[in-house]
Design a protein around this nucleic acid. Structure first.
Length: 359
DNA sequence: TAGATTTGACCATC
DNA sequence: GATGGTCAAATCTA
Protein backbone atom coordinates (compact mmCIF):
# COMPACT_ATOMS: atom_id res chain seq x y z
CA UNK A 1 0.00 0.00 0.00
CA UNK A 2 1.24 3.41 -0.82
CA UNK A 3 1.95 6.00 1.73
CA UNK A 4 -0.62 8.62 2.57
CA UNK A 5 1.51 11.22 0.96
CA UNK A 6 1.44 9.39 -2.31
CA UNK A 7 -2.25 9.01 -2.10
CA UNK A 8 -2.64 12.69 -1.51
CA UNK A 9 -0.19 13.50 -4.20
CA UNK A 10 -2.29 11.55 -6.58
CA UNK A 11 -5.32 13.42 -5.46
CA UNK A 12 -3.52 16.69 -5.77
CA UNK A 13 -2.30 15.88 -9.22
CA UNK A 14 -5.73 14.87 -10.27
CA UNK A 15 -7.18 18.07 -8.95
CA UNK A 16 -4.67 20.12 -10.85
CA UNK A 17 -5.23 18.10 -13.96
CA UNK A 18 -8.90 18.54 -13.55
CA UNK A 19 -8.40 22.25 -13.48
CA UNK A 20 -6.31 22.04 -16.58
CA UNK A 21 -8.87 19.99 -18.39
CA UNK A 22 -11.64 22.35 -17.55
CA UNK A 23 -9.51 25.29 -18.55
CA UNK A 24 -8.94 23.68 -21.90
CA UNK A 25 -12.63 23.08 -22.27
CA UNK A 26 -13.21 26.66 -21.50
CA UNK A 27 -10.61 27.73 -23.97
CA UNK A 28 -12.33 25.70 -26.63
CA UNK A 29 -15.59 26.99 -25.44
CA UNK A 30 -14.54 30.53 -26.14
CA UNK A 31 -14.66 29.71 -29.82
CA UNK A 32 -18.14 28.38 -29.66
CA UNK A 33 -21.52 29.97 -29.13
CA UNK A 34 -22.03 28.27 -25.81
CA UNK A 35 -23.83 30.20 -23.20
CA UNK A 36 -22.23 32.42 -20.64
CA UNK A 37 -23.69 30.15 -18.03
CA UNK A 38 -21.79 27.20 -19.35
CA UNK A 39 -18.59 29.15 -19.31
CA UNK A 40 -19.33 30.33 -15.87
CA UNK A 41 -19.70 26.78 -14.75
CA UNK A 42 -16.39 25.88 -16.32
CA UNK A 43 -14.71 28.68 -14.48
CA UNK A 44 -16.36 27.51 -11.33
CA UNK A 45 -14.99 24.06 -11.84
CA UNK A 46 -11.53 25.38 -12.43
CA UNK A 47 -11.69 27.32 -9.24
CA UNK A 48 -13.00 24.31 -7.44
CA UNK A 49 -10.18 22.12 -8.62
CA UNK A 50 -7.52 24.53 -7.56
CA UNK A 51 -9.25 25.16 -4.31
CA UNK A 52 -9.30 21.49 -3.58
CA UNK A 53 -5.69 21.17 -4.58
CA UNK A 54 -4.76 23.89 -2.15
CA UNK A 55 -6.78 22.28 0.56
CA UNK A 56 -5.03 19.01 -0.03
CA UNK A 57 -1.71 20.75 0.30
CA UNK A 58 -3.02 22.35 3.41
CA UNK A 59 -4.05 19.04 4.83
CA UNK A 60 -0.69 17.52 4.10
CA UNK A 61 1.04 20.39 5.74
CA UNK A 62 -1.16 20.11 8.77
CA UNK A 63 -0.58 16.42 9.13
CA UNK A 64 3.13 16.84 8.82
CA UNK A 65 3.12 19.26 11.69
CA UNK A 66 2.99 18.10 15.23
CA UNK A 67 2.72 21.49 16.77
CA UNK A 68 -0.19 23.38 18.18
CA UNK A 69 -3.44 23.88 16.32
CA UNK A 70 -2.62 27.52 15.93
CA UNK A 71 -0.81 26.51 12.80
CA UNK A 72 -4.04 25.64 11.15
CA UNK A 73 -4.96 27.90 8.34
CA UNK A 74 -7.90 30.19 8.13
CA UNK A 75 -10.01 27.56 6.50
CA UNK A 76 -12.46 26.06 8.94
CA UNK A 77 -10.37 22.98 8.76
CA UNK A 78 -8.60 20.97 6.24
CA UNK A 79 -11.08 19.32 4.02
CA UNK A 80 -9.18 16.11 4.18
CA UNK A 81 -8.21 14.55 7.38
CA UNK A 82 -7.03 11.04 7.03
CA UNK A 83 -5.86 8.68 9.60
CA UNK A 84 -3.43 7.27 7.18
CA UNK A 85 -5.31 4.16 6.31
CA UNK A 86 -8.28 4.72 4.11
CA UNK A 87 -9.31 1.13 4.30
CA UNK A 88 -8.13 0.30 7.71
CA UNK A 89 -11.35 0.01 9.60
CA UNK A 90 -12.41 -3.42 8.74
CA UNK A 91 -13.36 -4.20 12.28
CA UNK A 92 -16.31 -1.95 11.87
CA UNK A 93 -17.73 -4.06 9.19
CA UNK A 94 -18.69 -6.80 11.55
CA UNK A 95 -21.79 -6.81 13.61
CA UNK A 96 -20.86 -6.37 17.19
CA UNK A 97 -22.22 -7.48 20.44
CA UNK A 98 -23.89 -5.01 22.74
CA UNK A 99 -20.81 -4.96 24.88
CA UNK A 100 -18.65 -4.12 21.95
CA UNK A 101 -21.05 -1.45 20.89
CA UNK A 102 -20.83 0.22 24.26
CA UNK A 103 -17.11 0.47 23.92
CA UNK A 104 -17.08 1.77 20.41
CA UNK A 105 -16.24 5.24 21.53
CA UNK A 106 -12.88 3.88 22.60
CA UNK A 107 -12.22 2.91 19.05
CA UNK A 108 -13.34 6.24 17.75
CA UNK A 109 -9.87 7.48 17.15
CA UNK A 110 -8.96 4.46 15.13
CA UNK A 111 -11.79 4.83 12.69
CA UNK A 112 -11.18 6.14 9.26
CA UNK A 113 -11.94 9.81 9.32
CA UNK A 114 -12.04 12.40 6.66
CA UNK A 115 -13.63 15.72 6.22
CA UNK A 116 -15.32 17.65 3.56
CA UNK A 117 -17.06 20.93 3.18
CA UNK A 118 -20.35 21.68 1.61
CA UNK A 119 -21.62 25.00 0.57
CA UNK A 120 -25.34 25.22 0.59
CA UNK A 121 -26.94 27.48 -1.91
CA UNK A 122 -30.13 29.33 -1.29
CA UNK A 123 -31.53 27.68 -4.36
CA UNK A 124 -31.60 24.43 -2.60
CA UNK A 125 -32.22 25.89 0.74
CA UNK A 126 -30.83 24.78 3.98
CA UNK A 127 -33.64 22.41 4.31
CA UNK A 128 -32.71 21.08 0.98
CA UNK A 129 -30.58 18.12 0.53
CA UNK A 130 -27.10 17.63 1.55
CA UNK A 131 -27.39 14.08 0.60
CA UNK A 132 -24.63 11.75 -0.27
CA UNK A 133 -26.54 8.71 -1.30
CA UNK A 134 -26.48 7.09 2.08
CA UNK A 135 -29.24 6.85 4.54
CA UNK A 136 -28.32 8.65 7.70
CA UNK A 137 -30.15 8.74 10.92
CA UNK A 138 -29.58 11.58 13.24
CA UNK A 139 -28.78 10.42 16.70
CA UNK A 140 -27.62 13.52 18.42
CA UNK A 141 -26.98 17.20 18.36
CA UNK A 142 -24.69 19.09 20.60
CA UNK A 143 -23.54 22.59 21.18
CA UNK A 144 -19.84 22.79 20.66
CA UNK A 145 -17.70 25.07 22.68
CA UNK A 146 -16.70 28.08 20.68
CA UNK A 147 -18.92 27.16 17.81
CA UNK A 148 -21.85 29.28 16.93
CA UNK A 149 -23.87 26.40 15.62
CA UNK A 150 -24.59 23.01 17.09
CA UNK A 151 -23.02 19.92 15.68
CA UNK A 152 -25.27 17.18 14.44
CA UNK A 153 -24.43 13.54 14.62
CA UNK A 154 -25.59 11.03 12.10
CA UNK A 155 -25.10 7.34 11.75
CA UNK A 156 -25.96 4.92 9.04
CA UNK A 157 -29.57 3.85 9.09
CA UNK A 158 -28.44 0.27 8.65
CA UNK A 159 -26.31 0.25 11.72
CA UNK A 160 -28.45 -2.26 13.49
CA UNK A 161 -29.68 -4.26 10.57
CA UNK A 162 -26.42 -4.55 8.68
CA UNK A 163 -23.87 -3.58 11.21
CA UNK A 164 -22.82 -0.54 9.26
CA UNK A 165 -20.86 1.73 11.55
CA UNK A 166 -20.37 4.70 9.33
CA UNK A 167 -21.13 7.99 11.00
CA UNK A 168 -20.87 11.60 10.09
CA UNK A 169 -20.87 14.86 11.89
CA UNK A 170 -22.22 18.01 10.38
CA UNK A 171 -21.03 21.32 11.68
CA UNK A 172 -21.96 24.63 10.21
CA UNK A 173 -19.06 26.94 9.78
CA UNK A 174 -18.96 29.97 12.00
CA UNK A 175 -17.19 32.04 9.42
CA UNK A 176 -19.50 31.18 6.60
CA UNK A 177 -22.87 29.76 7.61
CA UNK A 178 -23.38 28.55 4.10
CA UNK A 179 -20.57 26.10 4.56
CA UNK A 180 -21.01 22.87 6.41
CA UNK A 181 -18.04 20.94 7.58
CA UNK A 182 -18.78 17.29 7.42
CA UNK A 183 -16.69 14.70 9.10
CA UNK A 184 -17.15 11.13 8.05
CA UNK A 185 -16.07 8.28 10.19
CA UNK A 186 -15.97 4.70 9.27
CA UNK A 187 -16.68 3.01 6.05
CA UNK A 188 -20.10 1.99 4.96
CA UNK A 189 -20.40 -1.74 5.16
CA UNK A 190 -24.07 -1.76 4.42
CA UNK A 191 -25.55 -2.66 1.09
CA UNK A 192 -25.56 1.01 0.19
CA UNK A 193 -21.85 1.02 0.19
CA UNK A 194 -21.73 -0.13 -3.38
CA UNK A 195 -24.41 1.96 -4.91
CA UNK A 196 -24.51 5.05 -2.85
CA UNK A 197 -24.24 8.15 -4.93
CA UNK A 198 -26.19 6.38 -7.55
CA UNK A 199 -29.38 6.65 -5.71
CA UNK A 200 -31.75 8.99 -7.41
CA UNK A 201 -34.64 10.61 -5.82
CA UNK A 202 -37.86 11.34 -7.47
CA UNK A 203 -38.81 14.95 -8.05
CA UNK A 204 -41.76 14.45 -5.80
CA UNK A 205 -39.52 13.37 -3.00
CA UNK A 206 -37.17 16.20 -3.65
CA UNK A 207 -39.96 18.67 -3.31
CA UNK A 208 -40.82 17.46 0.11
CA UNK A 209 -39.44 19.92 2.59
CA UNK A 210 -38.11 17.10 4.59
CA UNK A 211 -38.27 13.42 4.45
CA UNK A 212 -39.14 11.46 7.48
CA UNK A 213 -39.38 7.88 6.55
CA UNK A 214 -38.74 5.51 3.78
CA UNK A 215 -35.53 7.08 2.70
CA UNK A 216 -34.27 4.08 0.91
CA UNK A 217 -34.05 4.72 -2.78
CA UNK A 218 -32.92 2.41 -5.42
CA UNK A 219 -30.87 3.32 -8.40
CA UNK A 220 -33.07 3.75 -11.39
CA UNK A 221 -30.82 5.82 -13.60
CA UNK A 222 -27.30 5.11 -12.57
CA UNK A 223 -25.80 6.58 -15.69
CA UNK A 224 -27.42 9.89 -15.16
CA UNK A 225 -26.46 9.89 -11.56
CA UNK A 226 -22.92 9.04 -12.42
CA UNK A 227 -22.81 11.88 -14.84
CA UNK A 228 -24.16 14.18 -12.25
CA UNK A 229 -21.74 12.97 -9.68
CA UNK A 230 -18.87 13.44 -12.02
CA UNK A 231 -19.62 17.06 -12.50
CA UNK A 232 -21.22 18.37 -9.40
CA UNK A 233 -18.26 19.51 -7.51
CA UNK A 234 -19.36 22.99 -6.87
CA UNK A 235 -22.52 24.83 -6.24
CA UNK A 236 -23.45 28.23 -7.37
CA UNK A 237 -23.75 30.38 -4.36
CA UNK A 238 -25.29 33.47 -5.80
CA UNK A 239 -27.64 35.24 -3.51
CA UNK A 240 -26.28 33.55 -0.51
CA UNK A 241 -27.26 35.07 2.74
CA UNK A 242 -30.53 36.40 1.51
CA UNK A 243 -32.46 34.07 3.67
CA UNK A 244 -32.73 33.76 7.33
CA UNK A 245 -30.68 30.81 8.35
CA UNK A 246 -32.16 28.72 11.07
CA UNK A 247 -29.99 28.05 13.99
CA UNK A 248 -30.62 24.42 14.07
CA UNK A 249 -30.39 22.34 11.00
CA UNK A 250 -31.20 18.89 9.90
CA UNK A 251 -30.29 17.32 6.66
CA UNK A 252 -32.69 14.85 5.25
CA UNK A 253 -31.30 11.43 5.12
CA UNK A 254 -31.00 10.62 1.50
CA UNK A 255 -30.05 10.84 -1.77
CA UNK A 256 -29.59 12.31 -5.14
CA UNK A 257 -31.96 13.92 -7.45
CA UNK A 258 -32.47 12.28 -10.75
CA UNK A 259 -32.17 13.54 -14.23
CA UNK A 260 -35.28 13.33 -16.25
CA UNK A 261 -35.55 12.57 -19.88
CA UNK A 262 -37.10 15.94 -20.45
CA UNK A 263 -34.17 17.66 -18.96
CA UNK A 264 -31.73 15.75 -20.98
CA UNK A 265 -33.53 16.61 -24.13
CA UNK A 266 -32.93 20.23 -23.40
CA UNK A 267 -29.25 19.89 -23.90
CA UNK A 268 -27.89 21.60 -26.94
CA UNK A 269 -26.62 19.13 -29.44
CA UNK A 270 -23.08 20.37 -29.32
CA UNK A 271 -23.04 20.06 -25.59
CA UNK A 272 -24.72 16.75 -25.71
CA UNK A 273 -22.00 15.38 -27.91
CA UNK A 274 -19.42 16.23 -25.35
CA UNK A 275 -19.83 14.01 -22.34
CA UNK A 276 -18.05 16.47 -20.20
CA UNK A 277 -19.99 19.50 -21.27
CA UNK A 278 -23.13 17.52 -21.40
CA UNK A 279 -23.06 16.55 -17.81
CA UNK A 280 -21.84 19.94 -16.87
CA UNK A 281 -24.64 21.53 -18.72
CA UNK A 282 -27.12 19.25 -17.11
CA UNK A 283 -25.86 20.25 -13.76
CA UNK A 284 -26.14 23.87 -14.41
CA UNK A 285 -29.40 23.62 -16.20
CA UNK A 286 -31.07 21.92 -13.34
CA UNK A 287 -29.51 23.84 -10.57
CA UNK A 288 -30.10 27.24 -12.00
CA UNK A 289 -33.16 27.20 -14.12
CA UNK A 290 -35.59 25.12 -12.19
CA UNK A 291 -34.71 25.66 -8.63
CA UNK A 292 -38.22 25.09 -7.46
CA UNK A 293 -38.12 21.53 -8.48
CA UNK A 294 -35.01 21.09 -6.47
CA UNK A 295 -33.96 18.25 -8.64
CA UNK A 296 -30.43 18.75 -7.63
CA UNK A 297 -29.21 18.55 -4.13
CA UNK A 298 -25.96 19.76 -5.50
CA UNK A 299 -24.05 20.07 -2.29
CA UNK A 300 -24.10 16.36 -1.90
CA UNK A 301 -21.99 15.97 -4.94
CA UNK A 302 -19.49 18.38 -3.77
CA UNK A 303 -18.99 16.44 -0.62
CA UNK A 304 -19.04 13.07 -2.08
CA UNK A 305 -15.68 12.62 -3.58
CA UNK A 306 -13.98 11.13 -0.59
CA UNK A 307 -17.13 9.57 0.57
CA UNK A 308 -17.14 7.68 -2.63
CA UNK A 309 -13.71 6.27 -2.46
CA UNK A 310 -13.95 5.15 1.08
CA UNK A 311 -17.45 3.98 1.14
CA UNK A 312 -18.03 2.49 -2.21
CA UNK A 313 -16.26 -0.76 -1.49
CA UNK A 314 -18.44 -2.80 0.73
CA UNK A 315 -16.53 -5.99 0.97
CA UNK A 316 -13.06 -6.99 1.84
CA UNK A 317 -12.41 -7.87 -1.75
CA UNK A 318 -13.37 -4.40 -2.82
CA UNK A 319 -11.05 -2.93 -0.31
CA UNK A 320 -8.28 -5.18 -1.42
CA UNK A 321 -8.88 -4.16 -4.96
CA UNK A 322 -8.59 -0.52 -4.15
CA UNK A 323 -5.43 -1.10 -2.24
CA UNK A 324 -3.91 -3.17 -4.98
CA UNK A 325 -4.72 -0.67 -7.67
CA UNK A 326 -3.61 2.31 -5.76
CA UNK A 327 -0.64 2.85 -7.97
CA UNK A 328 -2.73 3.12 -11.05
CA UNK A 329 -2.97 6.43 -12.78
CA UNK A 330 -6.69 6.06 -12.68
CA UNK A 331 -6.91 5.53 -9.01
CA UNK A 332 -8.02 8.96 -8.10
CA UNK A 333 -9.86 8.96 -4.83
CA UNK A 334 -12.24 11.20 -6.64
CA UNK A 335 -13.77 8.94 -9.18
CA UNK A 336 -14.93 11.69 -11.43
CA UNK A 337 -11.35 12.75 -11.82
CA UNK A 338 -10.20 9.52 -13.26
CA UNK A 339 -8.33 10.06 -16.44
CA UNK A 340 -4.83 9.25 -17.60
CA UNK A 341 -2.05 11.42 -16.36
CA UNK A 342 0.43 10.80 -19.10
CA UNK A 343 -0.61 13.22 -21.80
CA UNK A 344 -0.98 16.12 -19.48
CA UNK A 345 1.26 19.06 -19.92
CA UNK A 346 0.79 22.14 -17.88
CA UNK A 347 1.09 25.38 -19.66
CA UNK A 348 2.32 27.97 -17.22
CA UNK A 349 1.24 30.68 -19.58
CA UNK A 350 -2.39 29.89 -19.36
CA UNK A 351 -4.04 33.30 -19.10
CA UNK A 352 -5.90 32.84 -15.84
CA UNK A 353 -5.40 36.46 -15.06
CA UNK A 354 -6.58 37.67 -18.38
CA UNK A 355 -9.09 40.50 -18.23
CA UNK A 356 -12.55 39.10 -18.23
CA UNK A 357 -11.45 35.58 -17.55
CA UNK A 358 -13.44 35.50 -14.38
CA UNK A 359 -16.36 37.37 -15.72
C1' DT B 1 -47.49 1.73 14.18
C1' DA B 2 -42.90 2.06 12.47
C1' DG B 3 -39.25 4.78 11.83
C1' DA B 4 -37.01 9.29 12.44
C1' DT B 5 -35.85 13.26 15.35
C1' DT B 6 -35.12 15.62 19.70
C1' DT B 7 -32.83 16.19 23.83
C1' DG B 8 -31.17 15.30 28.43
C1' DA B 9 -28.06 12.18 30.50
C1' DC B 10 -24.19 9.32 30.54
C1' DC B 11 -19.53 8.02 29.36
C1' DA B 12 -14.76 8.47 27.53
C1' DT B 13 -11.06 11.31 26.63
C1' DC B 14 -8.00 14.98 27.38
C1' DG C 1 -13.45 19.07 35.37
C1' DA C 2 -14.49 20.37 30.64
C1' DT C 3 -15.69 18.82 26.39
C1' DG C 4 -17.17 15.85 22.73
C1' DG C 5 -19.61 11.69 21.33
C1' DT C 6 -23.24 8.47 22.07
C1' DC C 7 -27.30 6.49 24.19
C1' DA C 8 -32.03 6.08 24.82
C1' DA C 9 -36.55 7.67 26.26
C1' DA C 10 -39.84 10.84 24.68
C1' DT C 11 -41.86 12.81 20.92
C1' DC C 12 -43.15 13.49 16.22
C1' DT C 13 -44.92 12.28 11.68
C1' DA C 14 -46.61 9.80 7.70
Amino acid sequence: MESDLSWEQNTLINELIQGMEVARKLKADLKTPYSVDTREMLVQRILSSYEKALQILNASASMSRTTSPTTVTSLPESTISLDGNPTGDGIYGAIKSDKEIKHDSKKRKTMTKWMDQIRVSSENGLEGSHEDGYNWRKYGQKDILGAKYPRSYYRCTFRNTQGCWATKQVQRSDEDPTIFDITYRGKHTCSQGSNASLLPKSPEEQEKPRSHNSNIHHAKQPQESLTMLRNNLTVKTDNLGNEEIPYSFTFPSTSFGCMTQENQSLLPLAVDNDPFLSSLFQTHLLSSTIPESNYFPSPSFQMNEFDWVYNMPHSESDITEIISTNTSVTNSPIPEFNFPLDPVEINPNFPFNSPGFFS
